Structure formats: structure tokens, C-alpha cells
Simulated scan of single mutants.
Amino acid sequence: MIVRHLHDIIGTDYDVDTPNWNSRRLLLKKDDVGFSLHDTIIKAGTETQIWYKHHVEAVYCIEGEGEIELVDSNEIYRIEPGMMYVLNGHEKHLLRGTTDMRMICVFNPACTGFEVHDEEGAYVSTHS
């Protein structure tokens, strides 16, 4: 059994903070459960280009407001608490935070914890 508390992750290597988002990684590939689990803050007033071409991501908003725009279709979906979306088609998208948004994210395959967004918005590992 794995037990972790968010307050124990904040400020560690499991807490990745960027200008647009802050991802607190609760489960990673090394935990060997088949997926990773992240408690992520999307910062207010930001827009992030993302394309998870190597991962499927499920996102559940628990706080805040914003929107997701699918790049290929220009469809825009409002994000608010209780809203869930899954990028099961590896959709290129723009994620915008109107306010700080707290999102619970699940990735398959599991993230290692060292991923950063490349110029296409895809996750690539900084470690092999």
C-alpha cells in the first residue's frame, strides 16, 4: 500500500513549479501502478500549449475556472469545479486559467516525474 500526503510533497522533487503551472506528483512510474497521479495548479492569467502525444490524460477540476481550446477544431470548453475531460485522442490544446485552477490529473503511461513540455507542448523526460 502507498500512502502520501500533499503537505509532504510540497517543496520536494515531486513538486514541479513553472511560470504557468505547479504539478505536485503523488504517484509516478516508479510506484509501478500503471498510471501517475498529479495535483496541479494552473495559474490565473496563463495560457499553456499542450500536446500529450505520448500520454492519455484525464483531468478533474476541483477549484477555479478557465477553459480548454482544442487547436484543430477551435472548440472551447469551460472548465469549472466538477468538470472532467479526457484527452484520449492526443488532442493538441490550449489550457487557460481565468483564476487559479486546481486539477487532479491522471496520466497513462505513468510519468517518471522528470517530464517537461517540449516546443510542441508534449511531455519529454529529462532523464532516460
Score class of each variant (00 low, 15 high):
L87A: 14
I50G: 03
E91R: 11
R78P: 02
H54S: 15
P81F: 10
G89I: 08
E91K: 06
R78I: 06
T112Y: 15
T48Q: 07
T12P: 01
V33C: 05
N74P: 05
E80P: 05
E75P: 04
E80A: 08
I104A: 09
V56D: 05
E47V: 14
H117Q: 09
V16H: 05
V116Q: 10
E47N: 14
T48F: 04
V106S: 15
Q49C: 12
T40M: 14
G66V: 02
V59C: 09
E119Y: 06
H55G: 01
L27D: 08
T40A: 09
M84R: 15
I50M: 14
K53G: 13
K53W: 13
A110H: 01
H117L: 15
H38K: 09
E67H: 12
T48K: 02
R96D: 00
D15E: 02
K30W: 06
V16Q: 03
N108W: 06
I76Y: 03
D118R: 03
Y52R: 08
V16F: 02
V56L: 10
D39Y: 06
N88E: 11
I50E: 15
V56W: 03
D32L: 14
I79P: 00
I62V: 09
I50T: 00
D32M: 14
T48Y: 01
Y14T: 07
P109T: 07
G89M: 12
I68E: 04
F35R: 02
I104R: 13
